[in-house]
Design a protein around this nucleic acid. Structure first.
Ligand SMILES: [Mn+2]
Ligand SMILES: [Mn+2]
Ligand SMILES: [Zn+2]
Ligand SMILES: [Zn+2]
Lengths: 145, 145
DNA sequence: TTTCCTGTTGCAAAAATTTACAACAAGATA
DNA sequence: TATCTTGTTGTAAATTTTTGCAACAGGAAA
């Protein structure tokens, strides 16, 4: 995932927020660390670079960047939380509650459902990253034994 | 929500688990307290009745009863977690990230989507209670100002 | 009833997450 | 560049949630 810093910074300033070194570091970290990054992973990474950067700031900034739609919050198994860049091409998850496995869904499979929610309920679902929990084929067959 | 204790107890024993006073208390609590009950609310309630019942047990039992499909885990705004009885008639949520409001969806609106996931991905989504996050009509119009 | 096995609990400590508040610093303005 | 406003951060403490472990107790079997 490419992280268009210049554009993001411009957007933040335009909204009256500030571009701090902490925010830049944390955003870069999520960008580099990949798809489903936990707060602790981010902290470990940025803390190595900026030892005074606190855990509180990591949590606050992840939350803030999510509100700004720059990051997407990802619900993993067991209620664990992760983050990733909110790119132009979202995908979604089928998360198995038994084996923790992840099946990735292309955005297209949700399209018609989302449109229906907009039409029927006037509600715009945040499409950045939706997780569905349930049970995968493997776990269902071995469990039914 | 009626809480068929006898039937639930039978089911637990059949699976090799035990019916303890703690589990019974916690289940009753969720049952009585209503739809979206937080761990802390449950703890306050049961702790009044059984002062030695610990927070750890509340968390463990809520998790356990969810695994047994007796309770359903409900994702609320801001990543907060709640529980409720997993009844025969599930419903789902449209959660507004701006104003925290909840729109309830009848189960039927998900039916065809769920069937598609089963057919295409051989994945059985846990239908007990699904939450979608996004932005409601009110917040979208006032925000676009 | 008594015995026995093993699933569960309470406790205390650890880990994760949030919060209050004073010091700080981004960046707009002059 | 110096100044000023106000959004942000670090610290420490408060909350919330998880975990290890020894003592306990459900309930099957005798
Ligand atoms: Mn993903
Ligand atoms: Mn509900
Ligand atoms: Zn599985
Ligand atoms: Zn709203």
């Amino acid at each position: 995932m490419t992280c268009n810093t210049a554009e993001i910074n411009r957007q933040l300033r335009k909204s009256g927020y500030r571009v701090t070194p902490q925010r830049q570091l944390i955003l870069e970290a999520v960008c580099q660390l990949g798809e489903h990054v936990t707060p602790e992973t981010v902290y470990d990474h940025v803390h190595r670079i900026a030892p005074t950067l606190s855990r509180a700031t990591v949590y606050r900034v992840l939350h803030f960047l999510t509100e700004q739609r720059i990051l997407a919050m990802v619900l993993m198994a067991e209620g664990r939380l992760a983050y990733e860049m909110s790119g132009p091409e979202p995908h979604h998850h089928l998360v198995c509650r038994t084996c923790d496995s992840l099946l990735e869904l292309p955005h297209s499979v949700l399209q018609s459902f989302l449109r229906a929610m907009e039409t029927q309920y006037d509600f715009e679902i945040d499409v950045s990253h939706v997780s569905f929990f349930g049970h995968c084929a493997d776990c269902r067959s071995s469990d039914g034994a």
